[in-house]
Amino acid sequence: MTNDEDALNGREENTESLEQQLERLLEDAEFTVASLRRELDGARSRREQEAMLRAQHAEIDRLREHLAEAQVHWGAVREFFEAALRELSSDQQDDDSSGEGQG
């Protein structure tokens, strides 16, 4: 074996070990990124959860208003049924006009 061949083999081994090192570094980096991502998601989720709980507690502080409103308002019920009837008649008109258009 000549010196050149030795040098070539040595470079190949070095390249392989360098690639392995880079691979390991990449794996470590990916692992770190994944765990950082998990931690970030967890922190966001905790913050959202806390915000939700705070909002819910704030809503319960208005329980008096909600209890006062927790009854049937017949005027609103009538309005709802009237709006539904209007939707029905406008749907029928649409159907009629599209039927005429086709005819």
Binding site: R64, E65, A68, E69
Partner: peptide, 18 residues
Amino acid sequence: VKSASQPTETPAVTAEKT
């Protein structure tokens, strides 16, 4: 949560009955 951060007052709440 999203809607909790928005000012989605219901008609019931805005009526401010006690």
